[in-house]
């Protein structure tokens, strides 16, 4: 029990990530409204971003901006003093990608709305069958 509690407390970032992935998948699979699915897709992408960023954290470490004065660049820099910059860089890319995907998805949703006047999948399916 002690073990479980310690496990729970030291890894809470992963619990949050797993919960978000499940919420995202649930929205994308169960919901029949296209906008809700788009929201679910975004939650899923955000979950992955949370996962990566939380890898980069280090206890008692600072922002990855090297403290330096002019002419004092020679003093040693210890990697343990700064958090891991790489996941942040990767996730800047992933954020941009998720914005881009969201933009295209909304554009297609607008097009669908123009065509069918609704964003409910069931109603669209009905209209396609009737056409």
């Amino acid at each position: 029990m002690e073990d479980l509690a310690a496990n729970f407390l030291t890894k809470y970032n992963y619990w949050a990530f797993i919960a978000l992935v499940m919420i995202g998948f649930y929205a994308m699979i169960v919901k029949r409204n296209l906008v809700k699915k788009i929201v679910g897709m975004n939650i899923l992408q955000t979950a992955v971003i949370l996962f990566y960023v939380s890898i980069g954290a280090k206890r008692d470490a600072d922002l990855p901006i090297i403290a330096h004065g002019h002419g004092s660049a020679s003093h040693a820099v210890h990697a343990a003093d700064y958090i891991n910059p790489l996941p942040h860089v990767l996730m800047l890319t992933a954020i941009v990608v998720s914005v881009a995907t969201l933009g295209v998805a909304i554009a297609l949703a607008i097009k669908i709305y123009r065509q069918y006047g609704t964003l409910e999948e069931d109603e669209i399916g009905e209209r396609i069958r009737n056409a």
Binding site: M28, K37, L44, Q45, F51, V104, A105, I112, Q115, I128
Partner: peptide, 29 residues
């Protein structure tokens, strides 16, 4: 008539696929 809906479903599936791949890479990292 049909392409936007097909495209949007492709986005959903493609994004899930890419996110899963990204998660895999994240675990490896």
């Amino acid at each position: 008539q049909r392409a936007p809906l097909a495209g949007l479903n492709y986005i959903f599936m493609g994004t899930i696929g890419a996110s899963l791949y990204l998660l895999g890479v994240g675990y490896i990292y």
